[in-house]
Design a protein around this nucleic acid. Structure first.
Lengths: 357, 357
DNA sequence: TTGTAGGCGTTATCAC
DNA sequence: GTGATAACGCCTACAA
């Protein structure tokens, strides 16, 4: 009958108008209604108006589920995010989401909780729902996830890293280089005992690479090494404070601390203030991510600015271009980073003197 | 032919196995395959195994779009969030999302950018996609949004406020009461000139109510009033710092500042430190939201803890219960709040003396 | 510019 | 326990 059955919150049954109802009321064929909605300019103005009236009269809402089935495209992108409670991932997604909206696509969201197997389950569900493309955070995925995506030839974009073997496309920056450069900067300012706080590296190649970049610079610039200089902790201000106490307890002579996240750095800075450790005079601190809070801290925090929003929106346009059949020239796009030097790593007077001698 | 045509990233065409292909290979009817997947216990073990083998052999991935059309349910909830770049909304969503996942539902996401008309567009698209339920942030919606949702009898939950006339259901807390209580607490500690920083109140009833709660308490407790005590600013640490300079320039005698967000409060606190204003001795500062950073600041920040995650997950279970046809006894659920008193509003010695005299 | 026919891949329904 | 049949509501393809 062209009417959908709907049982709603009130329990009553409602008949929902379908394209046939609209067509009948407008005195045209269903196909003409469909066209009037998809390609208005291919329908005469008169019929268009009759149809518009009929739509208004019936309260017709097109059924995209049926359209999707028939046209074999869902106008939907599936996105896997570790968690929303993390400004950087949220910013990537926000930029991505805007790019989609601009072109009529929608976002289906899944949380992986940093677990690759969780991601795998979500991707499988995305495929079943016939998403037109997939967005993955990071470059750490199970073999099965990669295989599913490739075998089904689903346009895919990986965010935040520069994988050597991308599933399909990737947009990000070099986590290794960024960490290397921060450490180099600290070395060049005269700091010799540079500690590192990262978040967990398990199944998180961004943290792994940042740690690797740090280690490479420590080696290249002959900085002091000590296993106690490196710590992995949860993404938590308090954990950072706790770890700072451990660090200065074990190595009171540490002169700089590089944190691979601005909140970690903020937590360490706050704890330093409580311990009476002067920043940067007694201890320099550098962060990562370039969050808003970094420039507002006292002292303001040296950090690495990541073009978060831009990475997300670039990923969106790349993915949609590929879906539209355009050739994507570059499959892995490096959006770069920028080190922002601020007060928290200013070379203290004492070091300046030593260095000059 | 039971095969889907798929054109993927490589441009080649792939024939995707359908339920008929699996059925043929397993020597059963398509319906039996469908049942084996939906209600395994209604199919004999033998057939089940044959089907499993056939599925593995064909690489069959069920087409949920077709299922959705046929079964008239999408197992999808549409959620409208103002923006992800805001920890509190992200936390609500995270809790909500987990509740959905536990029951096999998925989340379709839309950003409204705090614009009710943007929300309206998104909701219309959600309806077209036949979501089984809708999640809205806040209680400020256009008349058309409300009408669409009600006319179509879509289970809906509004988050973060306690609307008097909910579209359907709501989970949140009293923003008015929370702000009132914070202001009362400041008044009882002896502060008389209490300023307020909120974010924009346009189309945001949460901020409107917090401001109203503040004003009511100012009146009830006879605090000093001055239009210059109240400011609306963007959700930005730097804007908070800027506004603090304005405030102390105009009213150097202000003795307390209530910010309706912890980041605003942090921005004000950092600026106070730079200006040499002692907190709480010269100026008390209170925040809102109970973010992690609050307890780590120096001094630690008095704030209002909102059960963010719990609000989200409760909203999820309520919505799914209603979709499942269960009666939802309480349509508006107040999840409460808790004022956490910390160092930033400790009664300073000077005030204690005055009060005692 | 408009219409007809057929099918998209699955599940509801009822029969066996 | 299993299967045949008929939708689900729209769009592709082709015809007029």
């Amino acid at each position: 009958m062209g009417m959908e059955n709907v049982s709603g919150s009130s329990g009553r049954r409602v008949k929902r108008a379908g394209i046939r109802d609209v067509a009948r009321l407008a005195g045209v064929a269903p196909m003409t209604v469909s066209r009037a909605l998809s390609f208005p300019h291919r329908v005469s103005i008169e019929t268009r108006e009759k149809i518009a009236a009929a739509i208004a009269a019936t309260g017709y809402i097109p059924n995209r589920v049926a359209s999707n089935l028939s046209s074999n495209q869902t106008m939907t992108i599936g996105a896997v995010i570790p968690t929303l409670r993390n400004s950087i991932a949220a910013d990537f997604t926000e930029g991505f989401s805007r790019a989609l909206k601009a072109r009529g696509y929608h976002l289906l969201l899944g949380n992986s909780d940093f677990i690759p197997e969780g991601e795998e389950t979500i991707v499988a569900e995305f495929l079943a729902r016939r998403v037109d493309g997939v967005y993955l955070t990071g470059a750490t995925h199970t073999a099965k996830t990669r295989k599913m995506l490739r075998d089904n030839a689903i346009p895919t974009v990986e965010i935040a890293s520069l994988p050597e073997d991308p599933i399909d496309m990737a947009v990000g920056f070099s986590n290794f280089d960024a960490a290397y450069e921060v450490t180099r900067m600290l070395a060049e300012q005269g700091y010799r005992r540079v500690a590192l706080f990262t978040t967990f590296t398990k199944d998180n190649e961004r943290q792994v690479e940042r740690q690797a970049g740090y280690r490479a610079a420590v080696r290249d610039f002959g900085l002091d090494t000590d296993p106690r200089f490196v710590a992995e902790l949860e993404m938590d201000l308090k954990a950072a404070g706790r770890q700072l106490r451990v660090l200065v307890g074990e190595r009171p002579d540490v002169d700089a601390l590089f944190c691979t996240g601005d909140f970690i750095a903020a937590g360490a800075l706050f704890e330093a203030q409580r311990l009476g450790i002067r920043v940067p005079d007694d201890l320099a601190i550098a962060g990562f991510e370039g969050l808003e809070i970094a420039e507002n801290l006292n002292p303001s925090l040296t950090t690495v600015r990541i073009p978060r929003f831009e990475i997300g929106s670039r990923a969106g346009t790349m993915l949609l271009d590929r879906i539209a059949g355009k050739d994507v020239e570059q499959r892995v796009v490096d959006m770069g980073f920028e080190i922002i030097k601020r007060g928290s790593t200013a070379t203290p007077a004492t070091l300046r003197r030593e260095t000059a001698s």
